[in-house]
Every structure is written in C-alpha cells, then in structure tokens.
Amino acid sequence: MKIALRLLLALTLALAVSACRKDTTPEVTEPEPAPVEQPEPVETVAAPDPRDYSDARNFDNPESLLSKRVIYFDFDKSEVKAEYRSILAAHAAYMASSSTAAVTLESHADERGTREYNLGLGERRGNAVKGLLSAGGARGGQMDVVSYGEERPVCRVSNEDCWWKNRRVEVVYTAR
C-alpha cells in the first residue's frame, strides 16, 4: 500500500513536472509549407512556369524564386548580396503584376551589438530590400518595413552557424 502510494506520488510529480516544462525543440527556420494541392486524378493541371513571376502558384513551387522569401546579410552590413538580387527581382515583378499584393519586410539582426542599435541595423536591411523591390517595379505603398532587431531570433546558439540565420529580412506577404 505504502509503495503504491509512493509510486502514485512519484508519477504525479513526474506528470506535473513534464506538464510545467516548456517545449525545447528548436524553432523551425523555414516557413511552414502550405498544404500541397492534390491534382485531380482525371484532369491534369499544367505545372506553373517557375519563371512566370505573376503566377501566385509559384509561391509554393520550390523551382521558382518566388518560393524563396528570406534574404540573409553579413554581420553589421545592410547591402543585399548579389546572390539574393534575382529573388528580389522576382518578388518585385510579382508585386508589379498584382495591384493587391502587399508585403511586410520583417527585418532582423543577430544578437551581437546592443538591442536598440540592432533595431536600427534591422531597419537598414529592410530599407535596402525595399529599395531593390522598388527598383524592380514594386510601389512604395505595397511595402512596410518592421525591424525586430535581435528580438526574434530563429536560432539561439552564440556562434556563426546560428548568427547567419538570424541576420535576415523575411518578405512576408500580407496580401497576394
């Protein structure tokens, strides 16, 4: 009886502790993929041309640049590197083709440097992305820059493997 009671207590404690514990799995870095549309078995739908940047289906087409929506930066820098320019050109083309499209450029920094300075640095990055989107044909009213500085990291270890993932601008479509 005593043992049973003890067991029950131990079990209760274990349950309680596990219920209190926070989930420690690392944050997912990629945006959750949208559910894949199952083509009708009878009728075959033509796959979108990945280079047709006016086709909204390309947002979920891994072959298309429109599916890439995160731009990464060097430490304490806000220049958009050459490798990301084609991605931004694709989004600018989409925004030029869709009058309803609107994006928030969520801008981030890694943890190095002070928090308020990093708000400024994040905004600089967001503005650099906004400038390239404008140059590609997006209109100013379609874009908002929100800098979170270092407050919303996707990775929390203090080394470069993590830091590069945090120095980013996410192109978030609020309307397509």
Partner: peptide, 10 residues
C-alpha cells in the same frame, strides 16, 4: 487531487 497538485506545482 492529482490535477490540483499539478496546478499548484505549475
């Protein structure tokens, strides 16, 4: 009783 304890612990 178990859930009461759980609540208190949390």
């Amino acid at each position: 009783r178990k859930w009461l304890l759980l609540l208190v612990l949390c």
